[in-house]
Simulated assay, not measured.
Amino acid sequence: MFDAVLRRRLNGPLASVAGRIDRSWVTPDRLTVAGLVLGLASAALAAGQLWGWALLAWLLSRALDGLDGPLARRRTTGHGSPAGGFLDITADFIVYGAAVVGVAVGTVGASASLTDWLPFLAVLLAYYVNGTAFLAFSSIAERTGHRIDDGRSLNFLGGIAEGAETILVHAIWLLVPAYAPQVATVWAGVVGLSAAHRIIAGYRTLREPATESS
């Protein structure tokens, strides 16, 4: 929901940082992989109830995720590579899913009852539906000429729950793990609404005559 506004405000600072780290041995794909590793480390630290370290790893992971795109566009005259875009979105989905599992293990325990796991299972289900709608739209929009060109590799159909909200919510339950199940319950509902919105908006968009950008 806030991604478009934040991108406009952060484009300049992120491009500046990308310029400072633009060295031959620093590549966008390496930043993506480093963000993936830190994201998985955050999940493992959360599972071990090392909440402060998990939060630090989470924020560093997302910072690297925010830098790989600007660095890629800096090196490819404004557009990232298709392979890099594929790696980036795949890494994001892995990190988001692992983060939910890590927090669930750290707060309710691996041997907890199904009821205790339900809020986190609901988040994973909502992520699955939301991601399916997002990726299906991106693929079909590219093929049918309904492209949404905002400089990124994929056709991002906006939603209520986007990257900024996800980063914030995951940080909140690392800050206050005692309330993680309650946060997960609310977050599952928000992501579910976002998924419904994407399904409806995507269906309506694809029914319209194709244009090069929208």
Rank of each mutant, 00 (worst) to 15 (best):
167 I>Y: 05
15 A>R: 07
76 T>S: 13
38 L>I: 03
5 V>N: 07
139 S>I: 13
145 G>T: 10
162 E>W: 07
193 L>D: 02
62 R>C: 06
199 I>N: 09
114 L>W: 15
181 P>Q: 05
79 H>Y: 13
42 S>T: 02
9 R>S: 11
42 S>M: 04
105 V>R: 00
67 L>G: 01
62 R>D: 02
129 V>K: 05
15 A>C: 04
206 L>Q: 07
39 G>Y: 05
206 L>H: 05
154 L>W: 14
40 L>F: 05
17 V>F: 12
53 W>G: 12
188 A>H: 04
142 E>D: 14
24 S>R: 15
92 D>L: 05
86 F>Y: 14
1 M>I: 10
198 R>S: 11
64 L>K: 00
62 R>W: 05
111 S>E: 15
24 S>A: 15
91 A>E: 03
30 R>P: 00
204 R>Q: 14
145 G>H: 10
140 I>S: 04
81 S>W: 05
43 A>D: 05
158 G>S: 13
10 L>W: 09
104 A>R: 01
160 I>Y: 12
207 R>H: 14
213 S>G: 02
124 L>R: 02
152 R>A: 14
129 V>E: 00
19 G>N: 08
25 W>G: 01
160 I>Q: 11
203 Y>T: 15
199 I>K: 10
109 G>K: 11
112 A>P: 09
171 A>L: 07
72 A>M: 05
47 A>L: 10
141 A>C: 13
18 A>R: 01
45 L>H: 01
27 T>N: 02
9 R>C: 12
152 R>I: 03
18 A>S: 12
197 H>F: 15
164 A>Q: 02
64 L>I: 02
106 G>V: 08
119 P>V: 08
178 A>M: 11
154 L>V: 03
158 G>P: 00
106 G>Q: 08
9 R>T: 08
30 R>T: 05
133 A>V: 09
93 F>I: 07
35 G>M: 05
213 S>Y: 13
139 S>E: 14
23 R>I: 01
172 I>F: 15
86 F>C: 06
95 V>P: 04
185 T>C: 12
192 G>N: 12
9 R>A: 14
208 E>P: 00
39 G>N: 07
97 G>V: 06
92 D>R: 02
180 A>N: 01
181 P>F: 11
213 S>V: 15
199 I>R: 12
10 L>H: 05
101 V>N: 04
53 W>N: 06
88 D>F: 02
172 I>W: 15
205 T>D: 08
27 T>K: 02
41 A>V: 15
4 A>Q: 12
143 R>E: 11
18 A>N: 03
188 A>K: 06
18 A>V: 02
194 S>W: 01
32 T>G: 06
49 Q>H: 13
18 A>D: 00
113 S>W: 08
136 A>T: 14
123 V>F: 11
61 S>C: 09
54 A>D: 06
146 H>W: 13
38 L>F: 10
50 L>D: 08
36 L>S: 06
